[in-house]
Amino acid sequence: MLSVRLTAEQDAMLERLARETGRSKSYYVKRALDDFLADRADYLLAIAALEREEPRYSAAEVRRELGL
């Protein structure tokens, strides 16, 4: 179990969102945490690839290679 302290403004915004959508505040906190963790994992994987000096391609190069 985890306890998180929100600012009064965060709590009010979360309360309003939950009330207006019929979802729980926990639902939105879990979704936000899931999104953050996924983004952070992607970021760390990208940093690791850069540190390994793996080949990099621009979006234009990828489109050209795929014929898009």
Rank of each mutant, 00 (worst) to 15 (best):
S26D: 15
E9W: 05
V29E: 00
A46G: 12
A60G: 13
A32R: 11
L50Q: 12
A12G: 04
R19V: 01
A41Y: 11
R23G: 07
E20H: 06
T7R: 13
L2Q: 15
P55T: 00
R52V: 07
E9T: 11
V29M: 02
L68S: 08
Y28D: 01
K30E: 11
E54N: 03
E51M: 08
L44D: 07
L37W: 06
L44K: 11
Y57F: 15
A12M: 01
Y57R: 14
L45T: 05
P55A: 00
R64E: 14
I47H: 03
F36W: 10
T21A: 03
A18P: 07
L50F: 10
A12N: 10
R16S: 15
L45I: 05
Y28V: 00
A12V: 01
R52M: 06
E53G: 05
Y27H: 10
T21V: 12
D34G: 05
K25T: 01
A59T: 12
D39R: 11
E61W: 04
D11Q: 13
R5F: 13
A49L: 05
R64Y: 01
G22E: 01
R5K: 12
A59L: 10
R40Q: 13
A18M: 02
R64P: 03
R31T: 14
R56H: 13
D11H: 09
Y43V: 06
A41P: 02
G22M: 01
A60K: 14
E61H: 03
Y28W: 02
L66V: 00
R31V: 14
R64K: 12
Q10I: 00
Y57A: 11
A8N: 15
L6S: 14
E15D: 10
L14A: 01
A12E: 06
E53I: 00
S26V: 14
S3Q: 15
D42I: 09
M13T: 13
G67L: 11
A8P: 12
Y43T: 11
E54W: 05
A8H: 12
R5M: 06
A59Y: 10
